[in-house]
Design a protein around this nucleic acid. Structure first.
Lengths: 120, 120
DNA sequence: CTAAGACCTGACGCTGACGTCAGAGGCAAG
DNA sequence: CTTGCCTCTGACGTCAGCGTCAGGTCTTAG
Protein backbone atom coordinates (compact mmCIF):
# COMPACT_ATOMS: atom_id res chain seq x y z
CA UNK A 1 0.00 0.00 0.00
CA UNK A 2 2.82 2.36 0.84
CA UNK A 3 4.12 1.49 -2.59
CA UNK A 4 0.79 2.25 -4.19
CA UNK A 5 0.67 5.67 -2.61
CA UNK A 6 4.35 6.28 -3.29
CA UNK A 7 5.22 7.09 0.29
CA UNK A 8 7.17 5.28 2.95
CA UNK A 9 5.60 2.99 5.50
CA UNK A 10 6.97 5.27 8.15
CA UNK A 11 5.07 8.17 6.64
CA UNK A 12 1.82 6.20 6.75
CA UNK A 13 2.40 5.40 10.40
CA UNK A 14 3.11 9.05 11.04
CA UNK A 15 -0.08 10.15 9.30
CA UNK A 16 -2.06 7.70 11.37
CA UNK A 17 -0.33 8.98 14.49
CA UNK A 18 -1.42 12.49 13.60
CA UNK A 19 -4.97 11.40 13.02
CA UNK A 20 -4.88 12.02 9.30
CA UNK A 21 -5.33 8.47 8.12
CA UNK A 22 -7.48 5.70 9.52
CA UNK A 23 -6.72 2.01 9.17
CA UNK A 24 -8.64 -1.06 10.19
CA UNK A 25 -6.60 -3.56 12.11
CA UNK A 26 -6.56 -7.30 11.70
CA UNK A 27 -6.56 -9.43 14.82
CA UNK A 28 -2.80 -9.60 14.79
CA UNK A 29 -2.50 -5.84 14.53
CA UNK A 30 -1.82 -5.53 10.82
CA UNK A 31 -3.09 -2.39 9.17
CA UNK A 32 -5.49 -2.63 6.28
CA UNK A 33 -6.37 0.33 4.15
CA UNK A 34 -9.28 0.98 1.88
CA UNK A 35 -8.74 2.01 -1.71
CA UNK A 36 -9.74 5.57 -0.95
CA UNK A 37 -6.75 5.71 1.35
CA UNK A 38 -4.49 6.13 -1.64
CA UNK A 39 -6.22 9.32 -2.70
CA UNK A 40 -6.34 10.39 0.87
CA UNK A 41 -2.60 10.04 1.18
CA UNK A 42 -2.07 12.01 -1.99
CA UNK A 43 -4.27 14.77 -0.67
CA UNK A 44 -2.30 14.79 2.55
CA UNK A 45 0.91 15.03 0.59
CA UNK A 46 -0.47 17.92 -1.42
CA UNK A 47 -1.39 19.76 1.73
CA UNK A 48 2.00 19.12 3.28
CA UNK A 49 3.52 20.34 0.06
CA UNK A 50 1.50 23.51 0.40
CA UNK A 51 3.08 24.12 3.77
CA UNK A 52 0.23 23.06 6.01
CA UNK A 53 1.06 21.49 9.34
CA UNK A 54 -0.21 18.15 10.56
CA UNK A 55 -2.56 19.87 12.94
CA UNK A 56 -4.05 22.10 10.30
CA UNK A 57 -4.57 19.15 8.01
CA UNK A 58 -6.11 17.21 10.86
CA UNK A 59 -8.46 20.11 11.42
CA UNK A 60 -9.65 20.37 7.86
CA UNK A 61 -9.76 16.74 6.81
CA UNK A 62 -13.07 16.13 8.57
CA UNK A 63 -14.52 18.71 6.20
CA UNK A 64 -13.59 16.38 3.39
CA UNK A 65 -14.99 13.23 4.96
CA UNK A 66 -18.25 14.30 6.41
CA UNK A 67 -19.15 17.66 4.98
CA UNK A 68 -19.37 19.29 8.33
CA UNK A 69 -19.75 22.97 7.78
CA UNK A 70 -19.16 24.91 10.93
CA UNK A 71 -18.17 28.56 10.74
CA UNK A 72 -14.73 27.63 12.06
CA UNK A 73 -14.12 25.00 9.45
CA UNK A 74 -15.18 27.33 6.69
CA UNK A 75 -12.93 30.04 8.04
CA UNK A 76 -10.06 27.59 8.23
CA UNK A 77 -10.57 26.38 4.71
CA UNK A 78 -10.79 29.91 3.37
CA UNK A 79 -7.73 30.97 5.34
CA UNK A 80 -5.62 28.14 4.00
CA UNK A 81 -6.87 28.72 0.49
CA UNK A 82 -5.83 32.36 0.77
CA UNK A 83 -2.50 31.37 2.23
CA UNK A 84 -1.86 29.18 -0.78
CA UNK A 85 -2.96 32.02 -2.99
CA UNK A 86 -0.38 34.28 -1.44
CA UNK A 87 2.23 31.58 -1.70
CA UNK A 88 1.57 31.26 -5.40
CA UNK A 89 1.84 35.01 -5.79
CA UNK A 90 5.15 35.07 -3.93
CA UNK A 91 6.50 32.17 -5.90
CA UNK A 92 5.51 33.88 -9.11
CA UNK A 93 7.41 36.97 -8.02
CA UNK A 94 10.44 34.92 -7.09
CA UNK A 95 10.31 33.12 -10.39
CA UNK A 96 10.24 36.50 -12.06
CA UNK A 97 13.35 37.54 -10.18
CA UNK A 98 15.11 34.38 -11.25
CA UNK A 99 14.02 34.97 -14.83
CA UNK A 100 15.49 38.44 -14.68
CA UNK A 101 18.77 37.04 -13.37
CA UNK A 102 18.79 34.41 -16.06
CA UNK A 103 18.25 37.01 -18.73
CA UNK A 104 21.04 39.17 -17.37
CA UNK A 105 23.53 36.38 -17.15
CA UNK A 106 22.68 35.09 -20.60
CA UNK A 107 22.98 38.53 -22.18
CA UNK A 108 26.06 38.79 -24.36
CA UNK A 109 27.75 41.10 -21.86
CA UNK A 110 26.20 44.61 -22.03
CA UNK A 111 29.29 46.81 -21.99
CA UNK A 112 32.76 46.62 -20.64
CA UNK A 113 32.78 42.93 -20.03
CA UNK A 114 35.81 41.73 -18.20
CA UNK A 115 33.68 38.86 -17.11
CA UNK A 116 33.45 35.72 -19.21
CA UNK A 117 32.79 36.95 -22.68
CA UNK A 118 30.82 34.44 -24.77
CA UNK A 119 32.99 35.35 -27.77
CA UNK A 120 30.80 33.55 -30.24
CA UNK B 1 19.30 47.12 9.92
CA UNK B 2 17.64 43.90 10.90
CA UNK B 3 14.60 46.04 11.50
CA UNK B 4 14.88 47.63 8.07
CA UNK B 5 14.99 44.24 6.39
CA UNK B 6 12.29 42.86 8.66
CA UNK B 7 14.31 39.88 9.77
CA UNK B 8 15.94 38.94 13.04
CA UNK B 9 19.53 39.71 13.88
CA UNK B 10 20.06 36.00 14.25
CA UNK B 11 18.92 35.47 10.69
CA UNK B 12 21.42 38.04 9.42
CA UNK B 13 24.21 36.30 11.30
CA UNK B 14 23.07 33.01 9.84
CA UNK B 15 23.05 34.37 6.31
CA UNK B 16 26.55 35.67 6.80
CA UNK B 17 27.60 32.30 8.20
CA UNK B 18 26.26 30.65 5.05
CA UNK B 19 28.09 33.06 2.82
CA UNK B 20 24.96 34.75 1.55
CA UNK B 21 25.50 38.18 2.98
CA UNK B 22 28.69 40.19 3.36
CA UNK B 23 29.27 42.81 6.02
CA UNK B 24 32.15 45.16 6.65
CA UNK B 25 33.40 45.15 10.22
CA UNK B 26 34.36 48.09 12.35
CA UNK B 27 37.51 47.81 14.44
CA UNK B 28 35.53 46.58 17.39
CA UNK B 29 33.88 43.92 15.33
CA UNK B 30 30.54 45.58 14.70
CA UNK B 31 28.87 44.71 11.43
CA UNK B 32 27.99 47.42 8.96
CA UNK B 33 25.80 46.79 5.96
CA UNK B 34 25.38 48.71 2.75
CA UNK B 35 21.97 49.84 1.61
CA UNK B 36 21.87 47.17 -1.06
CA UNK B 37 21.99 44.63 1.73
CA UNK B 38 18.34 45.24 2.43
CA UNK B 39 17.33 44.15 -1.05
CA UNK B 40 19.78 41.33 -0.84
CA UNK B 41 18.15 40.05 2.30
CA UNK B 42 14.73 40.27 0.72
CA UNK B 43 15.96 38.27 -2.25
CA UNK B 44 17.40 35.67 0.10
CA UNK B 45 14.09 35.47 1.91
CA UNK B 46 12.28 35.00 -1.39
CA UNK B 47 14.55 32.17 -2.32
CA UNK B 48 14.17 30.53 1.06
CA UNK B 49 10.47 30.93 0.66
CA UNK B 50 10.70 29.13 -2.66
CA UNK B 51 12.24 26.19 -0.90
CA UNK B 52 15.86 26.70 -1.86
CA UNK B 53 18.53 25.64 0.58
CA UNK B 54 21.32 27.83 1.87
CA UNK B 55 23.81 26.02 -0.29
CA UNK B 56 21.78 26.46 -3.45
CA UNK B 57 21.31 30.13 -2.73
CA UNK B 58 25.01 30.46 -2.03
CA UNK B 59 25.67 28.86 -5.38
CA UNK B 60 23.48 31.16 -7.40
CA UNK B 61 23.98 34.45 -5.64
CA UNK B 62 27.31 35.07 -7.37
CA UNK B 63 25.33 35.06 -10.61
CA UNK B 64 23.49 38.07 -9.27
CA UNK B 65 26.54 39.99 -8.10
CA UNK B 66 28.99 39.53 -10.87
CA UNK B 67 27.18 38.20 -13.90
CA UNK B 68 29.33 35.15 -14.13
CA UNK B 69 27.84 32.88 -16.69
CA UNK B 70 29.31 29.43 -16.54
CA UNK B 71 27.38 26.49 -17.95
CA UNK B 72 26.89 25.18 -14.43
CA UNK B 73 25.48 28.41 -13.11
CA UNK B 74 23.08 28.67 -16.02
CA UNK B 75 21.98 25.08 -15.50
CA UNK B 76 21.47 25.73 -11.82
CA UNK B 77 19.44 28.86 -12.45
CA UNK B 78 17.29 27.10 -15.01
CA UNK B 79 16.81 24.10 -12.75
CA UNK B 80 15.65 26.20 -9.84
CA UNK B 81 13.39 28.23 -12.08
CA UNK B 82 11.79 25.02 -13.30
CA UNK B 83 11.49 23.73 -9.78
CA UNK B 84 9.60 26.84 -8.81
CA UNK B 85 7.47 26.41 -11.89
CA UNK B 86 6.50 22.93 -10.81
CA UNK B 87 5.86 24.15 -7.30
CA UNK B 88 3.47 26.76 -8.61
CA UNK B 89 1.70 24.13 -10.66
CA UNK B 90 1.35 21.84 -7.67
CA UNK B 91 0.15 24.65 -5.46
CA UNK B 92 -2.41 25.60 -8.07
CA UNK B 93 -3.68 22.04 -8.10
CA UNK B 94 -3.83 21.94 -4.31
CA UNK B 95 -5.68 25.22 -4.27
CA UNK B 96 -8.12 23.72 -6.72
CA UNK B 97 -8.71 20.79 -4.42
CA UNK B 98 -9.32 23.12 -1.53
CA UNK B 99 -11.71 25.14 -3.64
CA UNK B 100 -13.63 22.01 -4.46
CA UNK B 101 -13.86 21.13 -0.79
CA UNK B 102 -15.00 24.62 0.04
CA UNK B 103 -17.69 24.45 -2.58
CA UNK B 104 -18.88 21.11 -1.33
CA UNK B 105 -19.03 22.13 2.30
CA UNK B 106 -20.80 25.36 1.49
CA UNK B 107 -23.41 23.58 -0.63
CA UNK B 108 -26.72 23.26 1.19
CA UNK B 109 -26.10 19.56 1.81
CA UNK B 110 -26.60 17.52 -1.37
CA UNK B 111 -28.25 14.18 -0.95
CA UNK B 112 -27.93 11.14 -3.16
CA UNK B 113 -24.80 12.34 -4.88
CA UNK B 114 -21.70 11.08 -3.16
CA UNK B 115 -19.68 11.71 -6.28
CA UNK B 116 -18.95 15.19 -7.53
CA UNK B 117 -21.66 15.50 -10.09
CA UNK B 118 -21.09 18.28 -12.61
CA UNK B 119 -24.77 19.16 -12.38
CA UNK B 120 -25.97 19.50 -15.95
C1' DC C 1 7.84 -27.56 9.53
C1' DT C 2 10.86 -24.08 8.52
C1' DA C 3 13.06 -20.22 6.60
C1' DA C 4 12.39 -15.67 4.56
C1' DG C 5 10.35 -11.98 4.22
C1' DA C 6 6.75 -8.37 5.60
C1' DC C 7 4.80 -5.96 9.42
C1' DC C 8 4.54 -4.45 14.24
C1' DT C 9 5.98 -1.25 18.22
C1' DG C 10 8.96 1.79 20.42
C1' DA C 11 12.50 5.01 20.45
C1' DC C 12 16.42 7.59 19.07
C1' DG C 13 18.58 10.25 14.97
C1' DC C 14 18.60 13.73 11.52
C1' DT C 15 18.28 18.16 9.01
C1' DG C 16 17.68 23.19 8.37
C1' DA C 17 16.66 27.79 9.65
C1' DC C 18 16.73 29.91 12.92
C1' DG C 19 15.43 31.10 18.71
C1' DT C 20 17.51 31.83 22.88
C1' DC C 21 20.45 32.14 26.78
C1' DA C 22 25.02 33.48 28.84
C1' DG C 23 28.87 36.20 29.38
C1' DA C 24 31.66 39.94 27.59
C1' DG C 25 32.35 44.09 25.42
C1' DG C 26 31.03 48.79 22.70
C1' DC C 27 28.57 53.47 22.22
C1' DA C 28 26.06 57.58 23.03
C1' DA C 29 23.71 60.38 26.71
C1' DG C 30 23.69 62.61 30.96
C1' DC D 1 32.21 58.15 34.74
C1' DT D 2 28.32 55.67 34.80
C1' DT D 3 24.09 53.94 33.09
C1' DG D 4 21.44 51.60 29.85
C1' DC D 5 20.92 49.70 25.50
C1' DC D 6 23.03 47.45 21.54
C1' DT D 7 26.23 44.26 19.70
C1' DC D 8 29.40 40.38 19.69
C1' DT D 9 30.59 35.30 20.03
C1' DG D 10 29.73 30.75 21.08
C1' DA D 11 26.79 27.06 21.89
C1' DC D 12 22.75 24.59 22.92
C1' DG D 13 17.49 24.27 22.06
C1' DT D 14 13.50 23.69 18.90
C1' DC D 15 10.25 21.81 15.72
C1' DA D 16 8.39 18.87 12.06
C1' DG D 17 8.39 15.13 9.09
C1' DC D 18 10.03 11.60 8.64
C1' DG D 19 14.67 7.80 8.50
C1' DT D 20 16.50 4.10 10.81
C1' DC D 21 17.83 0.61 13.98
C1' DA D 22 16.43 -3.08 17.45
C1' DG D 23 13.79 -6.80 18.83
C1' DG D 24 9.72 -9.39 18.30
C1' DT D 25 5.42 -11.35 15.64
C1' DC D 26 2.96 -13.02 11.45
C1' DT D 27 2.44 -15.18 7.22
C1' DT D 28 3.28 -17.49 3.12
C1' DA D 29 6.26 -20.33 -0.11
C1' DG D 30 8.50 -24.55 -0.43
Amino acid sequence: MATRAAVSVRALRYYEEQGLLAATRSVSGQRHYTESAVERVKLIQSLYGAGLSSKTIADLLPCVDAQVSTPESRALLAAERDRIDRQIAELTLTRGKLDAIIEQTSRPSPQSAYTTEPAE
